[in-house]
Design a protein around this nucleic acid. Structure first.
Length: 154
DNA sequence: GCCAACGTTGGC
DNA sequence: GCCAACGTTGGC
């Protein structure tokens, strides 16, 4: 089992939206970055995901989700009316993919970006903390995963 | 293949 | 709202 971190702007899609989804899961569509896409294609059912809220008052990790379907074509790329439409993604040769995730838990409080930065040394080389990082999907090591859960106990 | 222009991300 | 950092596009 592997660990990941995925970003979402809470005003677009928040962990509360996932938690209260009547289906119990949602597809993670709209990723239009090759590196992020490649990470999604590596995901397996059962992999754990830190749900990160970006572009909000307190950016940070707000909970955990779980991959419940492996990568398949992102149909929103084929829809001219969709915000993430990409005419270069051909249904016969899709360029963009998505996974499905289900809600696991919402943390009692946010593990803020600031808290993560304050513990940067303990986290080692963490993609989220690299200068200029803009990746929306990134791997997390098991050690980092555990260290971040420890921050909840502070 | 180079690189300027442009669009997007995301913290602040 | 600002702007640094980065990815993509497209002319040459």
């Amino acid at each position: 089992m592997a660990y990941w971190l995925m970003k979402s702007e809470p005003n677009e899609y928040s962990i509360d939206d996932l938690q209260h989804d009547p289906k119990g899961w949602e597809h993670w569509d709209g990723v239009r970055n090759y590196q992020a896409r490649n990470f999604m294609r590596e995901m397996k059912v059962g992999d754990r995901v830190f749900f990160y809220h970006s572009n909000t008052e307190v950016p940070g990790i707000v909970g955990i989700a779980e991959v419940c379907r492996e990568a398949y074509p992102d149909h929103t790329a084929f829809d001219p009316d969709d915000k993430h439409y990409d005419p270069k993604s051909d249904p016969d040769k899709p360029r963009w993919f998505m996974v499905d995730v289900r809600f696991v838990e919402k943390f009692p409080r946010t593990v803020s970006l600031k808290a993560l930065k304050d513990h940067a040394e303990a986290l080692g080389d963490f993609a989220l903390l690299r200068k200029g990082n803009r990746l929306s999907v990134m791997p997390v090591s098991e050690a980092q995963w555990q260290a971040i859960l420890e921050l909840l106990k502070d």
